[in-house]
């Protein structure tokens, strides 16, 4: 019997020390609040790693999309280690490189470059959510 997947967990890099971390957070929130509300939930990465039972259970039963700000891939690695392979792993630097977007500087708040980057990344997350729900 086919079981329809109703929700996808988004595990976002928290990356306080990087502009890409902020882009990751803002883009993930845009998907949760505007692009795919009702189909997505956020999984708090530090809580997930620190032993959050509900977070780990959700991620082991439902598909996840991880969104990482840098090549250290904390979100993807942690999800795979603790709950299973993500349905899709996105890396912001790769997405932005493909789109020719550069010059991110701000960690706090969004400047023009960070705003454009957040919108582009949010669209990529939404696509990954749709694929996971198919």
């Amino acid at each position: 019997m086919d079981i329809k997947v109703l929700k996808v967990g988004i595990v976002s890099c928290s990356g306080e020390a990087l502009p890409e971390g902020t882009v990751s957070r803002v883009a993930s929130r845009k998907v949760l609040d505007e692009l795919r509300p009702g189909q997505t939930v956020t999984i708090c990465l530090p809580l997930f790693i620190a032993g959050g039972k509900e977070e780990r259970e959700f991620a082991s039963k439902f598909p996840t999309v991880t969104v990482d700000g840098c090549e250290k891939m904390c979100a993807a690695k942690s999800t795979e280690k603790l709950s299973g392979k993500p349905a899709k792993s996105l890396m912001i630097k790769e997405i932005l490189k493909k789109q020719g977007i550069s010059g991110l500087k701000q960690c706090r708040g969004l400047g023009p470059a960070e705003k454009v980057a957040s919108d582009v990344v949010a669209d990529e997350i939404a696509k990954a959510v749709d694929e996971a729900l198919e």
Binding site: S14, E16, L45, P46, I49, K72, C74
Partner: peptide
């Protein structure tokens, strides 16, 4: 620093 870095 990024908090999850500590955990990996």
């Amino acid at each position: 620093t990024c908090l999850p870095l500590l955990m990996i």
